[in-house]
C-alpha cells in the first residue's frame, strides 16, 4: 500500500470580477449566443419530493446587498442521491440536475433557486448528515470562492444530530447556516460576508 503525494500546486484563485455574468450567465445581462443559461433550471420535468424556493441576499460588511455576486448550489435529490458520475449508491431522479446557478439581481441583490428539499447523505464515518445544500459564492472583491452550506430551520432534530453542525464551537453561529421557513415550500437564506452575523464559511 503506497500513497502518492500531491506533486502539483492548485492553480491560484483570482476574483470573478464584476463581469462574471458575461461568461457564466450571459443571457442575464444581454442576449447571447447561448440559448439558455446553465444552472438556471434545476428541474427538467416532474421531480420526486418537495419542491422548494430559496431566496436570499449576499450582504457585505457595511450591510449592503451585493448586486454582482454569483451563487452556485449543489445537492442530492429528494432521496439523497447525487446526479453525479461517481454516485455509487443508486440512480438519482433523472429530472433533477442537482446543480443551480443564480446571480444577485443587478438592482435589488436578490438571488433565487427553484429546487427540491434534499434527502440525507452520509457524512464522516457513515453518520447521516442533516439535509443540506452545498453553496459556493464568488463576486468582485472575493479573492477565492467561499464555500458554505444551507441547512433548514424546520429540521430541528436532524440538525441537532448533524456531525458537522455539532463541531461548531460557538453554537450561536449555527443559525447563520439555517434557511428560514417562510411559508409552504419557501425559504429565506441570507449570506453575510462580514460583521456580527458573518456566515460560517468552510475549508473542506
Amino acid at each position: 500500500m503506497t500513497e502518492r503525494l500531491n506533486n502539483l500546486k492548485e492553480s491560484p484563485s483570482q476574483t470573478a470580477g464584476p463581469y462574471v455574468h458575461i461568461g457564466c450567465t450571459p443571457n442575464f445581462s444581454s442576449k447571447s449566443s447561448y440559448s439558455y443559461d446553465l444552472g438556471k433550471t434545476m428541474k427538467i420535468g416532474p421531480v420526486l419530493g418537495e419542491e422548494i424556493t430559496i431566496v436570499g441576499y449576499v450582504f457585505d460588511g457595511a450591510g449592503a446587498p451585493l448586486c454582482d455576486a454569483m451563487i452556485e448550489i449543489w445537492q442530492p435529490d429528494a432521496a439523497g442521491l447525487f446526479p453525479a458520475t461517481n454516485e455509487t449508491r443508486g440512480i438519482a431522479d433523472p429530472n433533477f440536475m442537482g446543480w443551480g446557478r443564480s446571480t444577485s439581481d443587478m438592482n435589488t441583490g436578490e438571488f433565487i433557486f427553484e429546487t427540491v428539499k434534499p434527502g440525507t447523505v452520509p457524512g464522516p464515518d457513515g453518520v447521516m448528515q442533516a439535509p443540506h445544500i452545498t453553496v459556493w459564492v464568488v463576486a468582485r472583491g472575493i479573492n477565492i470562492g467561499l464555500h458554505t452550506r444551507i441547512y433548514f430551520n424546520d429540521e430541528t432534530i436532524a440538525n441537532s444530530l448533524d456531525p458537522i453542525l455539532s463541531q461548531i464551537k460557538n453554537q450561536k453561529r449555527v443559525e447563520t447556516l439555517l434557511a428560514l421557513k417562510k411559508g409552504v415550500g419557501r425559504y429565506q437564506f441570507d449570506i453575510h460576508l462580514q460583521g456580527p452575523h458573518e456566515t460560517i464559511f468552510f475549508d473542506i
Binding site: P76, V121, P122, P124, Q129, H132, I142, Q167, E198, F201
Partner: peptide, 18 residues
C-alpha cells in the same frame, strides 16, 4: 476586498459526498 472578506476562521472538516 475590504468589505467583502470574511473575518472569522474557516470551519475545517474532511470532505463528504456533498
Amino acid at each position: 476586498s475590504v468589505k467583502r472578506s470574511p473575518q472569522a476562521a474557516l470551519l475545517s472538516f474532511p470532505s463528504t459526498l456533498s
